[in-house]
Every structure is written in C-alpha cells, then in structure tokens.
Design a protein around this nucleic acid. Structure first.
Lengths: 131, 131
DNA sequence: CTGTATCCGTTAGGATACTG
DNA sequence: CAGTATCCTAACGGATACAG
C-alpha cells in the first residue's frame, strides 16, 4: 500500500519503444483512431472543421479537435485563421504531411491486396470520401 | 437508466473507419504497441519466444503472446512447432509480412528525417536490435 | 463556426501465477 | 520452453455542455 510505482511500466515501455526505433513514434502518431483519415481528408481539400465533421459521421467535437491539434503539433498540417465573423479556420497539409500521406497510400494499397474481406452485419451507409 | 446503447459508438466508429478505408485496418493491426517491433525482429531472424522477450525488455508474457497470435491470425508471420523436449517453436515472416516490413522501413525513414528529437530524461539503456 | 472543459465507459497494456 | 488465465490500472475515445 505504501510504495506506488514511480513511473508506470506502461509509460516506460512506450518510451523504450520510441527510443528504440523512430517507426514506433510514427505509428504512435498516425496509429490513433481518426488521425490518418483526417490527414487524408485535409489533403483532399476538406479544409474546415465543420466539413471534416460532416465527412466523419460519428466523431465528437472534442475528439476531432484533439486530432487536429495533434496533427498541427506534429507539423503535418497547418492552421490558418481568417479574422472574419463568424470565424473561419482552414487547415492544410504541410510538405512532410504530404510525404506521409503518400506512404499511407502505399500501406492502403498493401492492405487492399492482402487483407481479406471480413463480412460484418450492417453495411453502415454513411457519408464518405475515402482514400 | 433503462436503455443502454445497443452497440457502443466506440465500436461503431471503429467499424465505420475500417469500412471506409483499408488503411484504417492496416493501422489497427500494426499501430498497436510492440506489434511492428516484433514483426521486424522476426524478420531479422529473432525467431523464438524467449529471444523476442529478451530483446524486448519489459514486455510481459501475455502481451508478447497476444501480439504473436495476432500476427499469426493476420497472416504476417507463421508459427512452426518442433516436437522436441522441451518444446521448440519458431516464427517466421510470410511473404505479405515481408512486403509490409518494407513499407514500415519507409515509414521509419520518413520519421528519421521529419520527426524532431525530443529530449527525455533517462537514456534507458536496454537491450536493442533496432530496425 | 470552431472549438474547450468535464465527466465517464471501454479497451489496451501489464503483473503475476500457473500449465503442457 | 512457450505459453494461458486472472486480475488490475492507465489511456483512449466519446457525450454533453458551454465559450470565444
């Protein structure tokens, strides 16, 4: 009951992996839900919060917000604020973000040829502009 | 209090994304902790449970076990059991697994040129055979 | 319109003990 | 040696209310 662990092994393991190889950093960034999708959408000129939200039926405000700021923080997209009323904000993919989406396209292509279909019950007819 | 949601939006969102684009399936697989690392190690001929555990200081038995069966299930590695005493088991990367590691190398390279260093306190001197 | 703050359930990740 | 079974905690993802 006395001594709680100083640093959780959970965090230690994460750091271990990220120190070990940059790949783990990359995957830590783009491996989270919505992230790759948002990046691709912005690359496809879906530039505004409301538009993104519209495409990504089901995403919550705070989640989209978090994803966007993460992408900005990592330098994969840029945020541009126009001083209008009401406020207009636009995001665009940076150079290194574009490079990354190219690699993601390759990953996607790999998936299409190698990941088998899995049949699920409901077709989920929602808004879409996939990769 | 009466009506709990039938399917959690959490799961619905996951399915939505995976239906939307294969990339999300790919990232759900390789985006989890340890997965890419294990795949790369096996590709580098670290073929046995105990060897992998040795390289990946800090991983728990059950976690490594889970990762390995996930990789087998996805057809990225193969498991070979030798009927010896004590039991010997070896894993090897499949064809499509190799293709995937090639793509991961590119991702890694991207990360090396584009992700800035972030200084952390302890250097974490552990076992290593990185990508 | 574009978010932030709070609160909460689910899932991922880990420690440990045990098995063929 | 190569794992499973159980239990536990931290992190992620989401709902909702509200703010600039």
């Amino acid at each position: 009951m006395a001594n709680k662990k100083i640093t959780s092994t959970n965090a230690m393991n994460r750091d271990f992996l990220e120190d070990r190889c940059t790949l783990n950093k990359v995957l830590r960034i783009i491996g989270k839900r919505w992230v790759s999708e948002v990046l691709v959408l912005i690359r496809n000129d879906i530039r505004r919060f409301s538009q993104l939200k519209e495409c990504l039926a089901g995403i919550s405000d705070n989640v989209l917000s978090t994803v966007l700021s993460e992408l900005v923080k990592e330098g994969l997209i840029e945020k541009q604020i126009f001083g209008e009323i009401p406020v207009r904000v636009e995001y665009k993919v940076t150079g290194k973000g574009k490079e990354l989406t190219d690699l993601m396209s390759m990953l996607c292509k790999w998936g299409k040829t190698h990941i088998p279909f899995d049949v699920r019950m409901e077709p989920l007819p929602r808004a879409a502009t996939p990769l």
